[in-house]
Simulated scan of single mutants.
Amino acid sequence: MELIEVADAVQLGVERMGVGPPVLLIGGLGMPSQIWELSGLTAALVDAGFSVIAYNTRGVAPSTATEPPYSVDKLASDAEHLLEACGITEALVVGYSLGCYTAQCLVRRRPDMVTGAVFLAGLQPSPIGALVGQMELDLIGRLGEIPAQVRVFEQLMTTLSPAMLQDPETVSIWRQLLADGDSLWSDRKGLHGQLAASFEWIMNEEPHPEHLAQISAPVLVLAFEHDVFFPPRTSRETAQQIPNSQFKQIDGAAHGGLFSNETNVVETIAQFCADQRHRLDGGGSRYASP
Rank of each mutant, 00 (worst) to 15 (best):
S260V: 03
R16D: 01
N56W: 08
R175Y: 11
G282T: 06
V14N: 03
R175C: 12
M157H: 10
V107I: 15
T89F: 07
T170M: 15
A76K: 00
F50W: 10
R188G: 13
E84H: 11
I269V: 12
A223S: 14
F50P: 00
Q276M: 14
C100D: 07
I88Y: 06
A223D: 05
Q241V: 04
C100R: 00
A179N: 14
V10S: 02
L41D: 03
G59T: 03
T158Q: 12
A103N: 07
H278V: 07
L120R: 02
I215Y: 04
L38P: 01
G87V: 03
R151M: 14
E237C: 04
L165H: 06
E225A: 11
W201T: 01
S260P: 07
G28C: 08
T238C: 08
L12S: 00
H255A: 01
S33K: 09
R277H: 02
W36F: 14
D112W: 13
R233V: 12
A179Y: 10
V6T: 12
M164F: 09
Q34C: 10
Q214M: 05
Q214V: 00
L160G: 00
T234W: 04
V23A: 06
L177C: 09
V6G: 00
V23M: 10
G13E: 13
A7G: 03
D180N: 10
G95D: 05
V266E: 01
I4A: 04
M1F: 14
A85G: 03
F119C: 11
G122Y: 06
L137W: 07
F224K: 10
H255R: 08
S198L: 09
G193D: 12
L83A: 02
S63Q: 09
L98C: 07
S51H: 11
R233N: 15
L220E: 04
Q176E: 15
N261P: 00
D112E: 15
Q240I: 02
Q249K: 09
T66I: 11
I250P: 05
Q246G: 14
M17C: 10
M164H: 13
L98D: 05
L195V: 03
